[in-house]
Nucleic acid binder design. Structure first.
Lengths: 328, 328
DNA sequence: CATCGTTGTTCCAACGTTGTAAAGACTGAG
DNA sequence: CTCAGTCTTTACAACGTTGGAACAACGATG
């Protein structure tokens, strides 16, 4: 692998002049510039990022800490973050926490200024004390706890409210919610949106229709749906806090010969690609994932470059209405 | 951020002694060791990986080059590769190519010994000339072209054959295949498995039943299925070269009121989690993804450590029979 | 022609780490 | 009490890069 020294020797100039050319710096005589460029070409020089970053005090990496890549939402988001990071010449390091406190703590511990310049976090279990981060960070989703860190995400209350309003507007009366969770900020907000939508329609909030889900996997949605169908009076509609729960719920409904959407309307959240092709296709709240990824990366870049203050960026969402919801 | 120097000063020893303690090296007096360890603890020292790797001539990273994280198969695989890489203290850098030649070339160009120690590649369009890699690499899937690089993957011919045999054993006679592709080695092998299974059952190979797919997304599967259903005599079963195609195919069948599995049996390939919860759930060839990830990382580690020769690792697969296939 | 400012180049040091070689401390044998 | 041998620590250099100071060359100015 060619180094600056090799290029310099070949071009007959000093190492620093080559460095200057490489970095587009200052004043270099056209003649020298040409010779250096030829030498660069000839040697196929590529800067050693480790050395450069050691010198510059940067690493060229950002961390993306998320529960699990096998969850479609995070996989899609990761892809978008990688793409957005390229604009700032950042490489992305992905850490999986599997949604556990231990996993999140160990991911955070491995972070540090020597490894990454900044971090994007999607925590699910972290406590206040954990947020002593050694690098600038931005939270995706919600502050589970009140902590001074930048955040990017949608208005979860409004989004959930929109989803449930949609069900209300179709004439549903007994609307269940799947995905309540004791420690997740996001869950609390979506539940609040659900509450508000019911309240404004003067529908009662029925405890037995609010079902918790510990993980947000398909299996959890199926289990929750089964428990709802076991009720004396099952719901006529269900709002799931993510698409995987909804997919699981639809599956469980199918197994009990409950037809979606005729007997049961289903709304999801995240708008996974999977939900467009499920049978029936799934009505879902669609956060603008590209906007989230872009905003998070840009925000961190500003923080690192100019030490900007904390920010709270709200990204848009929409409701994608599909086959899983029809009027009664 | 504390450096070796800080720790050394605090412990009252030289930098090198601290380095020796950190690396578990040679002989250090118990007394000094203790003092150093206390100082390490007190300062919260973490090695600067950039500097260490600069010195060691390693980077501590491997690249994972794949088409797209939003494809569930690759997302799952990426998660497993990250987990496997941790065992060797490797961080994983993910590059997306979006299945284009340009994307793959640019990903490869960005690779280099200064950035990564090794690379795991899932190419779809690369040509022979492109495989002048500057670091040890392993191919997942197939050699699209004949090229001297290690490979990890399943026996695609046998796997496809098993899938189609399953359809044959259920009494299907007109079995279509979706996913033929002019440049993908994997597609050619799965097609060969399809051919062999038909041949051994003395079923004719009908050209119009072999449908190409340019990408392997759900939309391509749906489009291919529509063209099959437009045939004068549509198939009674279809073997899709991945699960996304199968999901799309089932969706298209549903839209035409063709019932799966009664009117049409469907088999997929990859065994995505999505396929367990689709309605109907999808019979699918299940490669052992964890084994693939582990084998790929281990192989690279051996290559880097001891310069081992090329290898060709075959990982196991199984056929997961679900609702999408029943006897005629 | 001395001075000055501008432009262009080089030298040196430093980022934090570790391999090498050499120096220092200690042990036991003669 | 010396010497060899072993154990332990240290100084130094180097990995490839870049910021800053120093230096050189140049034309323009007084």
């Amino acid at each position: 692998m060619a180094t600056l020294k090799d290029v310099a020797r070949l071009a007959g100039v000093s190492v620093k002049t080559v460095s200057n050319v490489v970095n587009g710096y200052s004043f270099v005589k056209p003649d020298n510039r040409r010779r250096v460029e030829e030498a660069l070409e000839a040697t196929g020089y590529r800067p050693n990022l480790g050395a450069r970053n050691l010198r510059r005090g940067r690493t060229g990496f950002i961390a993306l800490v998320l529960p699990e890549l096998s969850i479609p939402y995070f996989a899609e988001l990761a892809g978008l973050v990688i793409a957005a990071a390229q604009d700032h010449e950042w490489n992305v390091l992905i850490e999986q926490t599997f949604g556990t406190l231990a996993g999140e703590r160990s991911a955070l511990a491995s972070l540090g200024p020597h490894l990454v310049d900044a971090a994007i976090l999607s925590p699910e279990a972290l406590q206040v004390d954990d947020f002593q981060l050694p690098v600038p960070a931005v939270l995706l989703g919600e502050h589970a706890v009140d902590v001074p860190i930048s955040r990017v995400g949608i208005d979860n209350v409004a989004a959930a409210q929109a989803a449930v309003r949609h069900l209300v507007s179709l004439g549903h009366q007994r609307i269940a919610a799947i995905g309540a969770h004791p420690h997740r900020g996001t869950a609390a907000l979506r539940l609040e949106g659900y509450r508000r939508a019911l309240a404004e329609a003067s529908l009662p909030l029925v405890d037995e229709l609010v079902v918790p889900a510990l993980n947000y996997h398909r299996a959890d949605g199926a289990a929750a749906m089964r428990s709802l169908l076991d009720l004396r009076t099952p719901p006529d509609a269900v709002f799931c806090f993510n698409d995987l729960l909804a997919i699981g719920a639809m599956r469980a409904a199918g197994e009990r010969f409950v037809r979606v959407p005729q007997d049961l309307a289903v709304v999801g959240f995240d708008n996974n690609e999977e939900s467009v092709y499920s049978s029936p296709s799934l009505t879902s709240v669609a956060p603008d994932k590209a906007a989230i990824a872009q905003a998070a990366v840009d925000l961190l870049h500003r923080r690192v470059e100019s030490g900007d203050a904390l920010e709270n960026v709200e990204t848009p969402f929409s409701l994608q209405v599909r086959e899983s919801t029809v009027a009664r």
